[in-house]
């Protein structure tokens, strides 16, 4: 067990390193100057001075070395566009926002998805089932920005219940989290339903009912595990998709999150910020996948090792 955990952690570090290295070269290859844009450009001396400051005049491997060394000490560097701000400071302000948004979206998705999925499975082929599954297909098909737009028109301009933009009180969280979570709620709903039906179709369930056990008991003790397995194996990719979906939601609701910083930095060629955000995101993602795998193996003792099917 411990060995597996250590192996997995090693995998995490390896993945993060791979991502970081790849991004390092990708962003440096992209043409464009981190210090200048259409509106103003620097004189050659100033440009040279800035480059020296950020080691940009050295070879790629030397720059990489500097960056890796700083990374090991926890220093993600300085922003090239926002002078005076360190990447650590920027991430410290924006990362909690994205994480809070993502976790609330995931929570909503799980709660809504699993309850509807269980409900639909228990009442298979009834109108409830079909209605819920129809809504679920809608949920999977509509992109989250469509939900966001509908939400804004209905609840911000229409009912004036929620604020339009910003990240201040809990009220600011509801609409973005809902918009972000709906596609995942739909998917989880379908997965739960499928998983549950699979378990419910087995013989021992019929035996349990025959023995006279209450539906609730049967569901909670046996069927639920069947429902949870596919959901848990979906959680990993879902989390990744929530992170990328948050880029769009952050843009629509102007949330000061990590995704927006990443997109801006990529456009501005702000190397350090790009690398910092990529490292943070991939660490988060890998770590989450690691946790999911752990819980999967806890849940289903038949599964062992890394390539569970």
């Amino acid at each position: 067990m411990l060995v597996m955990v250590l192996k997995r952690l090693g995998g995490v570090i390896l993945t993060v390193w791979m991502v970081a290295t790849l991004s390092f070269f990708l962003i440096r290859l992209a043409p464009g100057n981190p210090f200048a844009n259409e509106l103003h450009s620097l004189s050659p001396e100033e440009d040279a001075a800035r480059r020296r400051e950020y080691h940009l005049d050295e070879s790629y491997s030397v720059q990489y070395g500097y960056w890796l060394w700083d990374l090991c000490r926890g220093d993600l560097g300085d922003s090239m566009k926002y002078r005076g701000k360190t990447v650590n400071a920027l991430i410290a302000q924006t990362f909690p926002t994205s994480l809070a948004l993502g976790s609330m979206a995931m929570l909503m998705a799980l709660v809504v998805g699993m309850t509807t999925g269980v409900l639909a499975a228990l009442r298979q082929n009834s109108p409830t089932d079909y209605a819920l599954m129809a809504v679920a297909v809608f949920g999977i098909s509509l992109p989250s920005f469509v939900f966001a737009m509908l939400g804004i028109v209905l609840f911000v301009f229409g009912a004036r219940l929620f604020p339009l933009a910003g990240w201040e009180s809990y009220r600011h969280v509801i609409l973005p989290a809902m918009a972000l979570s709906l596609p995942f709620a739909a998917k989880i709903s379908r997965l739960t339903r499928v998983g549950m039906l699979e378990v419910l179709g087995e013989d021992f369930i019929r035996t349990a009912y025959a023995k006279g056990l209450a539906e609730r008991h049967v569901v909670i003790k046996h069927a639920l595990r069947g429902a949870m397995l596919p959901v848990i194996s979906y959680l990993g990719p879902a989390f990744a998709l929530i992170l990328t979906g948050s880029l769009v939601i952050e843009k629509i609701f102007f949330l000061p999150g990590l995704g927006t910083i990443f997109v801006q930095a990529a456009t501005n060629r702000d190397y350090n910020v790009v690398l910092g955000t990529v490292v943070v995101f991939s660490t988060l993602l890998c770590f989450f996948n690691f946790l999911v795998d752990l819980s999967y193996s806890l849940l289903d003792p038949r599964v062992k090792g890394s390539t569970g099917e």
């Binding site: 990328t244 880029l247 995101f281």
Partner: peptide, 22 residues
């Protein structure tokens, strides 16, 4: 398959964004 596992952890869309920027 271990490679696949490792790659599963990559935030692919970010890399795609970087590639697109390039």
């Amino acid at each position: 398959m271990r490679a696949v596992d490792i790659l599963y952890g990559l935030p692919f869309l970010f890399l795609v964004i970087l590639i697109m920027t390039l």
